[in-house]
Design a protein around this nucleic acid. Structure first.
Lengths: 122, 122
DNA sequence: TCCATAATTCGACATTCTTTGAAATATGGA
DNA sequence: TCCATATTTCAAAGAATGTCGAATTATGGA
């Protein structure tokens, strides 16, 4: 099951750290070596974890010269969140309402470059 | 880490099924025996899984006579979703926007009994 | 008190996961 | 071609996880 694969891929400290690092790195992503250096992981250990995250669809890697650059898939995490909300929490306003508010907050929906000037009309 | 505990608690088919069943059962929850019967699990196997879900704070059990009734914690799943959105996806509108929309949809925020007549003002 | 029901705890076993060292593959440059 | 860099693959060891039978605790009723 896809949800199980994604949940278990994230349910490990090292992989969760990798994923969060990549989300923070944005669409450009990071090379495997950079990730390893940033998190203090052995290259082969990291490689195994990158493979698991990739297979779960949470990240994707593309070769660039002699390095492979990995980037987080925003679609996959969005789908996972939607799964948790719809399939697991359908019909429970006390779950959805705070989530909706958080999603609407600037902290979440207005990245550094975005225009937040007037409470973002669109 | 709490997020890791919750993710790994849900990252197992049996436990995910238990959790979804309990979410569907609502605040009244279900007795351990009912859950075992509904999912076809051995009572001792289920007990181990209930313990893991409980320790992660995803469910809570209260004794009623000779049975123990378990109910899902809507707060815990809400917090997990918020964690995935804020800590993992901060500043990515393409993640938050669809989530916000889903949260706003009646399918999610208007349970059977709720009044959906006029787009629920409060 | 004695028994039946509901659920948990314990111990063992098989399976899966994680990490690590060593070797292999892929790429770019001299 | 030869070498250095970047990353992966392989095989093995150790840790963690999931399941099952048997025994145990807790509760209510005869």
């Amino acid at each position: 099951m896809l949800a199980i694969d994604r949940l278990s891929a994230l349910a490990q400290p090292g992989r969760l750290a990798v994923f969060r690092l990549l989300v923070g790195a944005g669409p450009e992503g990071m090379a495997a070596g950079e990730i390893a250096a940033a998190l203090g992981l052995a290259p082969n250990t990291l490689s195994a974890q990158l493979a698991i995250l990739s297979q779960a669809g949470l990240i994707a890697g593309t070769r660039e010269g002699r390095m492979i650059r990995y980037a987080a898939s925003t679609e996959s995490i969005r789908d996972l969140i939607l799964y948790l909300m719809e399939d697991c929490c359908g019909g429970h306003p006390e779950v959805c309402f705070p989530v909706q508010q958080a999603a609407a907050r600037a902290a979440c929906c207005a990245p550094a470059g975005a225009k937040v000037r007037k409470a973002a009309r669109n």
